[in-house]
Write a protein that binds this DNA or RNA. Structure first.
Lengths: 342, 342
DNA sequence: TTGTAAGCGTTATCAC
DNA sequence: GTGATAACGCTTACAA
């Protein structure tokens, strides 16, 4: 085993050089300081040999940047967010940044604590998919000058840089697809009603009806959460009614799992008895008993753009323009909708 | 807006106290140093009011601990690892630690770089689900005294603390279940053959045959990757043969998605025409066209135990006992296996 | 072409 | 009960 090198000073001593020179070489400033090629070579080789790499922690203290960015999401076990996290991590790493992953478990109090925590970690920037009920604490961070980008749950009025899907369009397309195939009574199983994505999807649902001169039956708008159980429960209720709908629009992939489960139990076939469209494409959507028609969100683009925008703020502290981007959704048509016009 | 407080010194000045006192109060050492209650109160209140919390980066430099742990996984977009990451993050946070998330994209070179990176970040410990081809670089880290726990892809011979599922048992149970229902020709669609979990699952498959005095048809052991396409391709090949098997054992949830897709296309029904058991329970497993019989891994326990073990090492640097834990898997029986004994 | 020394924000040691 | 000071490992003026 080598004599252990813990320090830039250890390494410098070993080489008969000053820490300054070592630091310069290791930071690629050899030419700027006209350090001899020989010296530079020796430094680099020794660093490799003794497996030395500068402490980011000491570096961070001195330079006021840590090469880390904080990521706050409501639930990393939700594939939607896991996919986003994947692309964010990848893009960040490409730029030499590491991710501090924080899970808010969809709890506002936790979210606030996490923001404080990330500030104390001196992250260079924050990407956050907020719980989405209150935003003051987030606006405070942004206004305090810390680079920050909001994803998923946000809206133009917030005055916060944000990347989101066009949930209105997704809701409209899905509903319109059903209507165009002759469906007139379409149940809508919502997620969390107060959340912005939910409101927008619902707006799409409503306007699609209006544009097709279709009356909306308010009793067909049900549900209150993005989880499986909600989809299951509402489906059981709806299809026990006198005049059940011919179709269901599920507002999340988890909701549609619940819908499918309930329909199975009730021996109702998709699409023969009930048609189904769900928000959020998943790898298994195409391989379900009946391949499911879904609204796909561009998850990796959301992550990529979030990083792009964040780095504008990180690289140029003067840049304060509030960027707001809305990404197109895509309707993936499969076999879960019956054509009633035939 | 308040006069800005960036420093412990700013805060001390504002209070007419020394940084030392402020630090002591904020670190809960008021009594130890017999600091007056009044002073302590004032400090705490001012800290809250001015939204001050100590820089973890400066603290880390001084105290030689960063309150962070590094997590290296092959693919955060894989729900199996996302679930593990979820429980690790949750447990770590409970202990006041943050997670630096690193995705190795199943690439050994990247994995090595990430380890160096995490060392330069001075993480207090590392949890790693290795690519699993080579281990020297990981053993080096462990031997250098950095607390480290391996999850998922590891084995007793490694002399590395590790938490893993009992993949042998899972493979045995799944195969035995099929055999007990009268299946004699069972295809086995593998993942990455060199990986330890795969070897163990295969060992279970083989021994289940032996214990039931069943000959193994080597041409029934196929496949080379944990992904969907592999499951699809192998299924198409197998069920184009003269004497196809009556059942398939898929070694991952992605593989079974491919199997289902292929069987659908070939108009083969589960379980009427083909029975199916898959490794790795997923939220949708129960809601597929035919609810699928799966082998469930205790993902959240893996995360929890990894943290528990890691913290033994973190808390007691003298503790060097190599902990190896193998978690039971659970066969979840649903409707995807036909009883041939009827 | 290289080196010296100060300072980043914190806490531990020693002093009073 | 409280405070002055050094030190953690690094980079950057400034010096030579």
């Amino acid at each position: 085993m080598h004599s252990s090198v813990n320090d830039i000073r250890d390494l410098a001593r070993l080489l008969g050089l000053s820490p300054t020179t070592v630091s310069r070489v290791l930071n690629g400033k050899s030419e700027k300081y006209r350090i001899s090629n020989l010296t530079a070579q020796k430094v680099r080789q020794a660093a490799k040999e003794y497996n030395y790499s500068p402490s980011k922690i000491a570096r961070g203290l001195k330079m006021d940047r840590t090469d880390t960015i904080g990521l706050i999401i409501p639930d990393i076990s939700n594939p939607f967010f896991a996919d986003i996290a994947y692309s964010i991590e990848k893009e960040a790493r490409l730029k030499g940044y590491s991710i501090i992953l924080c899970d808010s478990v969809d709890d506002l109090k936790v979210e606030k604590e996490l923001i404080t925590l990330l500030r104390s970690h001196k992250v260079d920037g924050i990407i956050i998919a907020p719980v989405g009920i209150r935003y003051e604490h987030i606006i405070n961070v942004y206004n305090s000058g810390i680079p920050l980008v909001v994803i998923d749950r946000c809206f133009p009025g917030l005055d916060l840089p944000s990347i989101t899907s066009d949930n209105y369009q997704g809701g409209y397309d899905a509903t319109n697809h059903l209507i165009s195939l002759g469906h007139k009574k379409i149940a809508c199983i919502q997620g969390m009603p107060e959340s912005f994505p939910n409101k927008e999807r619902l707006r799409g649902y409503i306007e699609a009806h209006e544009n097709n001169n279709l009356e909306i039956d308010k009793t067909m708008i049900v549900g209150d959460s993005f989880v499986i159980e909600n989809g299951y429960r509402q489906t059981r209720i709806i299809f026990s009614m006198e005049n059940p709908p011919t179709a269901v629009f599920a507002f999340s992939n988890l909701i549609s799992i619940g819908v499918i489960k309930a329909l199975n139990e009730m021996s109702l076939k998709i699409p023969a008895d009930v048609s189904l469209v769900s928000f959020d494409e998943q790898p298994y959507s195409a391989y379900l008993g009946t391949p499911m028609t879904t609204v796909n969100q561009k998850k990796s683009e959301i992550g990529q753009l979030a990083i792009d925008v964040l780095f504008k703020y990180i690289m140029d502290k003067e840049y304060r323009q509030v960027v707001y981007m809305k990404l197109k959704t895509e309707l993936i048509v499969r076999d879960s909708v019956r054509n009633l016009r035939n």
